[in-house]
Computed example of a mutant assay.
Amino acid sequence: MSEAQTEYRVEAADVEKAFGELKVLKGVSFKVAAGTATTIIGPSGSGKTTLLRTLNALDRADSGVIRVDDVEIDFAAPTTKAEVRRFQSRSGFVFQGHNLFPHKTVIENVTEGPLMVQKRPKDEVMAEAVTLLDQVGLAAKRDQYPFQLSGGQQQRVGIARALALKPKVVLFDEPTSALDPELVGEVLSVIKDLAVQGWTLVIVTHEIQFARQVSNQVLFTDQGIILERGTPEEVIGNPRQERTRQFLQRILNPL
């Protein structure tokens, strides 16, 4: 499919973000095609998570234009709360630390957004929640509370909760970084299944082999810019930039 024919679910143009004097994003631009998985890799402090959070306005960009599905915001211009809410509704966010409501059961966590925010019919929402929990392997845990679950199970609930909002794009912020090593695989397996099913995914990850397996596009960030982009084979298998090579050598061949 040619560039002109490609349907893009996310388009970011010249995105800038600073925290005080620290400029974290320096004119970042990229696109994510519908039904594809994009992974963002790079060293700590390179702007990966901030970039992801700007796609949901959890961190509001200082300037630049971001479009998610059919909603576009020019962050250099004034925006209303309603415009930002509409922008945020197009994506679901899966956090590093699960961020589940501790006083709500698994199924209550999954149904909270569709019921309270989207005001959708309860019968419909409950039926979809059961299906989603089955999809992530947790249908039997529906009435348990987060403290009764492993970290990997909590993260899978977080994924089901994001999917319950029927987002056009699912954003993952290092979804395995808070997990014990033996629990990482169960979460990555769920994300791989979503990619196969055709969800549009943007994933910040330090799991390089996972990025190689799941990605259609890999972005390597360093010092607030996208230094290299391409297919997994191009960026991970045969990087053009010396900085990318150094990073991958350190990650893939630790001392």
Rank of each mutant, 00 (worst) to 15 (best):
E7I: 11
E7M: 05
A13D: 01
G20A: 12
K23W: 05
V24Y: 02
L25T: 03
K31M: 01
V32I: 08
A33P: 03
A34K: 13
I41D: 01
S44V: 06
V65Q: 06
V65H: 09
I66C: 05
R67P: 04
D70Q: 08
D74S: 11
A76G: 15
V84W: 12
R85N: 12
S89K: 14
F95A: 02
G97E: 15
N99T: 13
P102D: 10
T105G: 10
T105W: 12
N109Q: 02
V110G: 06
V110M: 08
T111N: 03
L115M: 14
L115N: 09
A127E: 15
A129E: 08
T131E: 14
L132S: 01
L132K: 08
L138A: 09
P146H: 09
L149P: 09
Q153K: 12
Q154C: 09
R156L: 09
G158H: 03
R161M: 11
R161I: 08
L171F: 11
L179C: 05
P181G: 08
I191E: 08
K192W: 04
D193C: 04
T200R: 03
T200A: 00
V202K: 00
Q209M: 15
F210P: 05
V214C: 12
V214N: 03
F220S: 00
T221D: 04
L227M: 09
L227I: 05
P232F: 05
E234N: 05
V235T: 04
I236C: 04
N238P: 02
N238V: 09
